[in-house]
Simulated scan of single mutants.
Amino acid sequence: MTKTRKPDSYWRDICLKYAQGQYHFSTGKRPGAKKWKKALEKIDACLLQSHSTKDLFGRSLRCSCGFHKSAIEKAHSEEWARQTIRYLSDCERHMKMATFVPTAAVYLPPPAFRPLPLAQWFETVHSNDILSHVDEMKGVITSTYGRILKMDSTKKITKKLAGGIGDSAAWMSNIGNEFGQVLNSVMTTGEGAGLEELCQGIVTRYKNAGQTEPEVVYVDRDCCSQSGVSSVAKLFHPWKSAVRLDSFHFMRRFNCGLTTEHHPLYGTFCGKLSSCIFEWDQEDVRRLKEAKRAEWKSSHSGHAPTEEQPPSAQGN
């Protein structure tokens, strides 16, 4: 019994729900006993509390607090009990319906409860399942192409690295297509390192698959050169694709002339600048309006929106 006059069973159930994300503590409602305070600290420090079962490199995360494992075992036992009750209920119903049958039906007892295997067993089964699909996954990953490529580098991903590899990389460079799919990535200790292998790997992939080279490659820097051939174009040799500065970093070049980004008209300036670069495709706008009108008709018994209807109903 804690100082709040709550039994240990109550706080154990609360911790299980908290580990599953089904319970949130309001201000001042956490347990006062050191035992359960320490338990909550373990849950917060557990890697599985982020509701992710894999780390950045696809390795399985293990529960260090014990409550996530307990939650799984509880769910397993509840599901077994639920299925057992359903089976016995069906047997009883069948027995009542078969009253006038001369031969009595024989019902097997429900399967006995079996505890969950160890975590190592689950990891082995999961690893074997992944290994059985390695060729398929490689084929899917290396069969991604695009006619417009975008190369960019970031530090955000490398900051998520933890443990012994926490300081092993400082930059992550990616090459994606016009659909937002990532074709290839590389982690390096400095910006610009490993880009030649990254780009030549994409060139080789296109060549082996018989794909035509992309029309344009967008970058965040080094798109131009006084000698006539940019350094990015050399990375994708022998492609003749155009190399252009992407629109976001093009707009950032104008922002460098501003004194602050906290000015009340900064958002308006960027919006106007964006409208000077982009324009609405009228064919896409027409299709969007038709889709919105069709959606309105399907939800209003086939009646088309009138001029008095709001613009959203008319597809404007």
Rank of each mutant, 00 (worst) to 15 (best):
R62M: 06
V101A: 02
A294P: 05
S168Y: 09
T124H: 14
K138I: 09
Y10R: 04
I148V: 15
D129V: 01
S168A: 14
A193G: 00
C15A: 12
M1K: 12
A104E: 11
C276W: 09
A81M: 13
L245G: 01
K17T: 00
G267Q: 14
N255P: 02
A162D: 09
T154A: 02
V106C: 10
A45G: 14
V216L: 07
K292H: 07
A313M: 11
K272I: 03
W121F: 12
G315K: 12
V243Q: 11
C46H: 02
R252K: 10
S70R: 15
K42N: 10
L273C: 05
R59V: 09
A104N: 09
G163S: 08
M137A: 13
L48Q: 04
S173R: 08
E92L: 03
F278P: 04
L149A: 12
R5Y: 10
G257P: 11
R253S: 12
T188A: 10
V229R: 05
G58A: 07
S9D: 05
A291Y: 10
G210V: 08
S89C: 06
A119M: 09
C276K: 07
L16M: 12
G32M: 11
R5S: 10
G271E: 11
H249L: 01
A104S: 12
N184Q: 14
S52V: 05
K292E: 08
M95H: 02
L118P: 01
L265R: 12
N255G: 13
A304S: 15
C199V: 09
N208G: 00
S50M: 10
A71N: 09
Q226G: 10
F57E: 11
T99F: 11
C199Q: 14
A242S: 13
W280K: 15
M251Q: 08
A304C: 06
F113M: 04
A294D: 13
D90K: 13
G32V: 13
R147N: 15
L61S: 10
S275W: 00
F250W: 02
C15V: 04
R221C: 00
C276M: 11
P115Y: 01
A75H: 06
W296D: 06
G166F: 03
K234A: 07
V182K: 00
